[in-house]
Computed example of a mutant assay.
Amino acid sequence: MTGPTVPWNAAWSAEASYEIRPCRWVGGRLALWSPHKPGEGKPIFAKPHMVRQRRSIAEMRCTVCGEKTPENDRWWFKLGRIQEGYFMTTEAPVHHACAAYALTVCPHLRGRAADLEPLPGGYSILSAIVGGPAVDQDFGIKIDPARKIIGSLKLAWPAHRIRVEERS
């Protein structure tokens, strides 16, 4: 299989301006927003586009190709961490074929084939609230701590249900 040279969720340098706007993927609540200009400028692989990331979780869209994943073809790489008794990930599912392709082209995923498994059921979708000095620095937006602004969405399971090996 051949696939995109840049994952659907990746941000592009032309999208690197940020505002706070209502977002339909979180029920119209206020969220970090950036323009939709995929393919313009240079890809930023380590930083997903804020709106596409939320949409991928909300609609279970493949982070590689952007198409919806049917329930019988939702896979994940067990990327995330345990926080407050829950395993959380900002990674949306992928199609099996897209995951196999990503294993061959993505340096971050190379060697992680053993981590690929069907996305488990019983997850919750959580909204990550952002603010503070890191947001000021990363996005150039000063957020009033009294306002609840959403950054990314996360999938979460009770930590005891997801067994992962910590990697750096």
Rank of each mutant, 00 (worst) to 15 (best):
T90Y: 12
R110S: 11
M88R: 15
A128E: 11
I149Y: 08
E84Q: 09
W75L: 07
L32E: 03
M50V: 13
N9M: 05
P70M: 13
C98K: 11
I44F: 10
F77N: 04
R161S: 03
A11L: 09
A159K: 02
T104R: 12
V105E: 13
E165C: 07
G66C: 04
E84I: 01
Y123A: 05
S124Y: 00
V164R: 12
S124K: 14
I57R: 02
R21I: 00
R163I: 15
G111Q: 10
Y101A: 02
V94H: 07
F87V: 02
T104V: 06
H95W: 04
P4R: 05
M60H: 14
R55W: 06
R74L: 00
S124V: 00
V94Y: 05
E166N: 13
S56K: 02
F87N: 03
T63E: 13
H160M: 05
A100S: 14
I20Q: 05
P93V: 09
R110L: 12
M60K: 12
D144I: 01
L116G: 09
N72D: 15
G151W: 10
I150Y: 01
W75H: 06
P107W: 11
A58K: 02
R161C: 01
H160V: 09
W157N: 01
P93I: 07
G132R: 05
A16H: 15
C106K: 15
R55H: 06
I150F: 00
K142A: 11
G80K: 11
D144E: 06
S127C: 05
E165M: 04
P118S: 14
A134P: 05
R161A: 04
K47I: 10
P35F: 06
K142P: 00
T90N: 13
D144F: 00
E117W: 07
I82D: 13
I129V: 13
I162W: 07
P107M: 12
N9H: 08
V6N: 09
A92W: 01
A156G: 06
T2W: 11
V130N: 00
A128R: 14
K68P: 14
K37Q: 14
P145F: 06
C106R: 15
G28I: 03
K68H: 15
E117Y: 03
A128G: 13
W8D: 12
E117L: 13
L103P: 05
E19W: 02
F77L: 11
G41D: 03
E40M: 10
F87M: 04
W33M: 09
G66E: 07
P48M: 11
A146H: 05
A113Y: 10
G28M: 00
G140L: 05
F139E: 04
I149F: 08
C65G: 11
P22M: 07
I149T: 01
T90V: 04
H108G: 14
R147V: 09
G85T: 10
A58I: 06
P145I: 15
A128D: 09
G111V: 10
A92V: 08
